[in-house]
Design a protein around this nucleic acid. Sequence first.
DNA 1: GACCGGATGTACT
DNA 2: GTACATCCGGTCG
Length: 195
Amino acid sequence: MPPLPPAFYAQDVEEAARALIGVDLTVDGVGGTIVETEAYDVADPASHSFAGVSARNAAMFGAVGHAYVYRIYGLHHCLNIVCGSPGSAVLIRAIEPRHGLPRMQERRGIDRPLRQLCAGPGRLCAALAIDLALDGAQLNAPPFRLITPERHAPIVTGPRIGITKATDRPRRFCMQDSPWLSRPVSNSLAASQHN
DNA sequence: GACCGGATGTACT
DNA sequence: GTACATCCGGTCG
């Protein structure tokens, strides 16, 4: 159960987004297995880094292996992992909850269906108590912990969610048949592939 | 300095 | 399926 090596974060952002599927992610011991990611980079009109460096997206242009956390729609947070070339990051969209379920339920509401605990970028940030205080934080140090998966599960790709630009690019990566996704992968555009 | 719209989630109908 | 909460960065004046 080794942590992700520093070199992991240096690889191309699309490869990193694929390789992050199956990784165990915890914040202060609370978290689970990453099952859904999306890749973004500077050449991408849908990326926050597309327009260049700013106060908000500075972490995207910083060292790899750090977190880029931002607030969206005024109330939610989203967690990205800075990977590859400057201005690139992987959005973590869903995890399978495995560690610290009571604490997640406490944060998200005890009567909420387990399936919806971490299914969505805003939901998982709420469950793991991720907010702007963790923007720019190192991922190979507390409170973060990322563990290399023992074996890679089949991965399905599809178009990204909730964006209006560059929607044709299949840069969303999901663990095949996972019940913990924010949304199923649309059949017509899905392409199955292995690591 | 104002305005716009977003990598969303929830509570309704 | 639709409304709405609620903030900030980017853009244009």
